[in-house]
């Protein structure tokens, strides 16, 4: 009876892992495709981490813009990361998670700057935080939040 219960647990884990693997990797591929496509579209919007200085009369207006996203990892990758903790080394599944989150946040910031008619964004800063139910549970990074913010500059014509 006890072994049956144990097997039942195992089956649930296996089903969740397979579900997480198929749906999660599909979603990740789709997300990367959309990120690359939008990055190409927004290539003209210059983003720099420097403050820059402008000659007087050049800048029309400036405003703070920001973009943020919360992305979580799928069950299969979480299992992989737990296994990886035993041997150490690169945790690739988390690398792609934070990479996606940061690029998505930057894209959203650029999109909101474009809506305001800005020409460029200066002094861009990135921040990462963990949030939600996994934030306080042990040290697990289940979901990650990325914020990108900067100052959008609208240049005067001519």
């Amino acid at each position: 009876m006890e072994s049956l219960l144990q097997n039942f647990d195992l089956v649930i884990v296996l089903v969740l892992a397979i579900l997480g693997y198929t749906v999660g990797s599909l979603a990740e591929k789709r997300h990367y495709r959309s990120i690359i496509k939008r990055e190409k579209e927004l290539l003209k919007m210059a983003v720099v981490t420097a403050e820059g200085s402008f000659p007087p009369g050049k800048v029309g207006s400036s405003a703070l813009v920001s973009g943020s996203v919360v992305i979580s990892i799928d069950y299969f990758k979480r299992l992989l990361a737990i296994l990886r903790n035993i041997f150490g080394g690169r945790v690739k599944s988390y690398e792609s998670l934070v990479d996606r989150a940061r690029r998505e946040a930057i894209l959203r910031m650029k999109e909101s700057a474009r809506k305001q008619g800005a020409n460029m964004i200066i002094n861009m800063r990135l921040e990462t935080a963990t949030i939600g139910r996994s934030a306080n549970k042990r040290k697990s990074v289940g979901s990650v939040e990325a914020i990108a913010y900067g100052t959008a500059i609208v240049m005067n014509k001519g």
Partner: peptide
Amino acid sequence: AGLKNLVGGELKGYTELL
């Protein structure tokens, strides 16, 4: 959000909240 944690992806509820 807990359900979404299984398959991964954006947690829109939390993004909105933040």
